[in-house]
Amino acid sequence: MPQTVKKSRVTVTLTVIVLSAAAIAVETWLWSSRKYYLTSVIIILLAMLPFFARFEGRRPQVREIVLLAVMTAFAVAGRVAFYWAPQFKPVCAIVILTAAAFNAEAGFITGAAAGLISNMFFGQGPWTPWQMFGFGLVGFFAGVLFGGREVKTVPMLVYGFFSVLIIYGVLLDTGSLFMYSQEVSLKALLAMYASGFTFNLIHASGTVVFLLLLQKPVLSKLRRIKIKYGMLQ
């Protein structure tokens, strides 16, 4: 990795940490009552910034952009197609497969973009940044674990199940608590996780089902495209 890229990455990361700390400081000292939701959304937006900045900064090839757009659209179309089944959605499965075929960055971008675009069909709301970050992180860690390597089915299914249950579920439930309640305590958080558990369980199992169904065709197609066009290596 060139020195300049490394340096700018450190700078961006440091900036995000400093700004997040500033947001928390402002929250604690300036406002009399705590504004959990606003502060958390500011931090989430800041946390997503480096991923997008890095993608933009390395001037991606048109092919990469178009390919990620296709995978994003597929995830969104999947969410639209299963609108009638609460929480039973293929978005996370498609994001995980994209990340596994390429890398962590592709996973994050696809996930976050799918969160944003699908809400253009379902309606934007205070939950949009949380969904973007949730899908993005599920994709990011999938890329870290499986990106570019020979994929084994069982670890991927296990990852799909637990990443949705823990990363996405906990993140979104925390977001809901910040949205709907101004009183945040450990007890309230635990109550929220408990009430959301069934939904997260459906979502996680759904992801496993979709991973099982989609894994083989999607991965082989992406691998073929990768070889044929020599990209995202």
Binding site: P60, A69, A73, L116
Partner: peptide
């Protein structure tokens, strides 16, 4: 520009 190209293409692909 890259991110917005990605988003507008995805939006049109759906």
């Amino acid at each position: 520009p890259s991110v917005s190209l990605l988003l507008s293409m995805a939006l049109r692909f759906v």
